[in-house]
């Protein structure tokens, strides 16, 4: 018995590479054990904070795009987002986490990063 599936392509290597990339951004399990419980929890919490930060940023950009914000409001939003991003960088550094580790598969919405 052998597999009779047809796979037709002129570029198998490219597809393998891209599928591997797509697989590698799938969320991994939170690996919490007594030795790294802090990092495991930090990863979970920071992933959620990052999700909220990105949503806020996107919403803000939509409003900028729609010209529905005054200059003062844009200034205030910019300052808030900038501080939030800096704080996230700091926390990621404290827990030794990289950007790609804070990923979430949001189902039909795709991946967070």
């Amino acid at each position: 018995m052998s597999l009779n599936k047809i796979v037709e392509t002129d570029s198998p290597a490219n597809f393998i590479e891209e599928m591997e990339k797509a697989q590698s951004i799938l969320p991994e399990k939170i690996d919490a054990n007594p030795k790294n419980v802090e990092k495991g929890l930090a990863k979970l919490v920071l992933t959620l904070v990052e999700l909220i930060r990105k949503l806020l940023e996107k919403q803000a950009m939509r409003r900028v795009d729609a010209n529905s914000l005054s200059d003062e409001e844009v200034e205030r939003i910019g300052e808030t987002l900038m501080k939030l991003e800096n704080k996230m960088k700091e926390l990621k550094g404290v827990f030794g986490l990289k950007d790609e580790e804070l990923n979430l598969n949001l189902g039909p919405l795709g991946d967070l990063m």
Binding site: M61, D65, G78, E79, L81, M82
Partner: peptide, 14 residues
């Protein structure tokens, strides 16, 4: 419009 750090940040993000 504007040239503060916050405005530059929003410009880049935009």
């Amino acid at each position: 419009s504007g040239n503060s750090q916050a405005m530059d940040y929003v410009t880049d993000k935009f």
